[in-house]
Design a protein around this nucleic acid. Sequence first.
DNA 1: GTCTATAAAGTGATAGAC
DNA 2: GTCTATCACTTTATAGAC
Lengths: 218, 218
Amino acid sequence: MTRIPAPERREALVQAALRVVAERGVAAATTRAIVAEAGMSLASFHYAFVSRDELMTELINFVVDRQENALAPLLVPDGSTRTLHEAVRAGLEHYFAVLRAYPQREKAMLELTQYALRMPDMQPLARRQYDRYRALAASALAGAAKLTGNRWARPVDEVARQLVALTDGLTMAWLVDRDDDAAAVIMDLAADAIVALAEPATTTPSTGHPTPTMTRTS
Amino acid sequence: MTRIPAPERREALVQAALRVVAERGVAAATTRAIVAEAGMSLASFHYAFVSRDELMTELINFVVDRQENALAPLLVPDGSTRTLHEAVRAGLEHYFAVLRAYPQREKAMLELTQYALRMPDMQPLARRQYDRYRALAASALAGAAKLTGNRWARPVDEVARQLVALTDGLTMAWLVDRDDDAAAVIMDLAADAIVALAEPATTTPSTGHPTPTMTRTS
DNA sequence: GTCTATAAAGTGATAGAC
DNA sequence: GTCTATCACTTTATAGAC
């Protein structure tokens, strides 16, 4: 009907595809289901994309970039944070609140990751996805330590890797049994584990000048 | 050709389906691919199962039971274990060795879990799967603590839940980037985190009689 | 019980009118 | 550029010969 530039059509189709994947899964994201969701005809799909594979690739790239923007503000500790433990716990809580509010979104992310792992040419996309998660976590962790007067006893990349692993485990656990109390237990223990990797910051190592900041509060 | 009893045919088809899922993914596990893998004709499939859904349900039940048998011996600490930290690290190492040797197997488990999460009637199967993981982890953790003269400061079910979450995160991380060194980091930190939840066992709480067993060795 | 043949519906992709 | 109509193929499931 109306004439729409190709780039806009591509974006509309990608977003429609994401909705379909979130609501009904990757397997249900057929070209027909996607164009129906976008309110277009089937032919429009192949005008904007040469193939379904091309759309799936763009979809994964899209969600990876989007994830970065969506999660970044959540992991930055706010002014009310006093201890590192509070900051980490708050970050986990924030992540969990999003998971709880939009479970299909995280389910979609997991499915898309596994989809990428099955496609010979898409492994790099899955890696990029996790690299971003970790970079995001690392910068949040670095900021949180700095703000609370701590430093990481391990390379911050390793701490970030652990935080992402814990977050994946939390996500799977909650998606499977939807048990908020059990999720809270995981977050408690995860925060303890992460904070145990930090120590009070000192301007010079081994200085007899401990900062008043606590490494951990239980 | 040859006449085979229905129960045997069902089992053969389930195992063929598992091989197809492991090698090519859930999406590729069509009835045709499965009967080809089993060396049967398409009609034999519908003689043994009324539908593909029925086979998928039986497949998930099958792998859940199988997982229990396959992993149980790996998590029991052997006689050479001296400290709890060694026991936990060895358990993780064992799990990782299996993951590394048969990555398709774990990929298949993850895919089947997500498949179950999308099917309205299969959520209980996914829950049962994780219940078994956790029960298995709990019994291994209880045994390891006992053998090394420790006790869990938290309910062992909570510790087990955390261990399973960490294992899931480890699995996802390794499947995505196949980085053995990064996996070793995750296992190190995971073992530290788990062991931090234990304390030396005392016959009576608050007795001034510490056992010689160390809670943790780094 | 097991096969071949086929039905009925769904899939990605394209042709060709407008 | 956008549509309808359709192709060529795959899917699950069944009929009917043996």
